[in-house]
Amino acid sequence: MAFAIPKTTYTGKIKEVVLGKGPKAITVGGETSYPFHLFEGEMPHPPRIAIEVYDTPPDDWSEASLEPYRDVLRDPVAWAKKAAEVYGADLIALQLVSTDPNGLNIPSDQATETAKKVAAAVDIPVIVNGSGSPEKDAELLRKVAEACDGMNLVISPVVVDNYKQIGAGAIAYKHTVAANSPIDINLAKQLNILLGNLGVPDGQIIVDPTTGGLGYGIEYTYSVMERDRMAALTQQDERLQFPIICNLAKEIWKTKEAKAEDSPLMGNAAKRGVLMEAITAQLLLLAGADVLIMRHPEAIRLVREMITDLMA
């Protein structure tokens, strides 16, 4: 049988969402085909990479992940600047882990100050991640939204238990929300509907499907994302047509396999960690990620090259 390129017909399009403000604001989304299927559609905005910045010095990182940031671990502002200027981050992802009520439980006001300083110190878009405690995040992220009025941050994670409080702040102070659901396409859609009903404009919503790391559930995230893109692009499921963000680095570097020392069996520790992060990112890109939150500069370099090559 003769060969003809077998093309898929798409009926939907991913919405375009602008992140940040000013000349360095970036647009994500806009795809009219499955990821990198450029022979039958468009990917007008290549996937972007955010670099993590922590508000408190990490105490359990491996040598390989500490090394690039050793001089800035105690200073989130310096850390963000290094990520932007030295490692070329497209966005900063500020991880306000110190606010965790089960951890250091730093007051929201103090963390809000950190967020404000970091957002002011860089001209690229900033993602502000709470600790994942729905109650604390509701308070914290509302304050961050207010303090950074008009900067169009990505406020994250917004979950079904706190979307009203955080969503209201995002509307009032013009930020984008990352709608986070527990690896389930129906719950993801439901939260997008709720945010829409609340009045959050479509151009201010991106979806965080919850990311499982390599060996730790990536297949669930991978398939939920593929189903999401299929519904959005071929089944006109309008409430799933949002760009996707994956907060992956922390899931990789905390595993014992990423932390294990050099050995004949497991090879070089630093390269292994980098590859675990980069391979996770690569799989998520193929499943439909628009923004990747990453850590190691070498993993980022490799993933950027792959994005370029896949779009070449």
């Binding site: 390599l214 060996g215 990536i218 297949e219 991978y222 396999e257 050995s263 004949p264 069996l265 497991m266 090879g267 070089n268 520790a269 390269k271 292994r272 590859l275 675990m276 391979i279 799989l283």
Partner: peptide, 18 residues
């Protein structure tokens, strides 16, 4: 084949084919 690359590839393969 090096451990640092083969190990993550084997895990990726297992995950995708689960």
């Amino acid at each position: 084949f090096q451990g640092e690359s083969l190990f993550p590839l084997l895990v990726a393969r297992l995950n995708i084919y689960t």
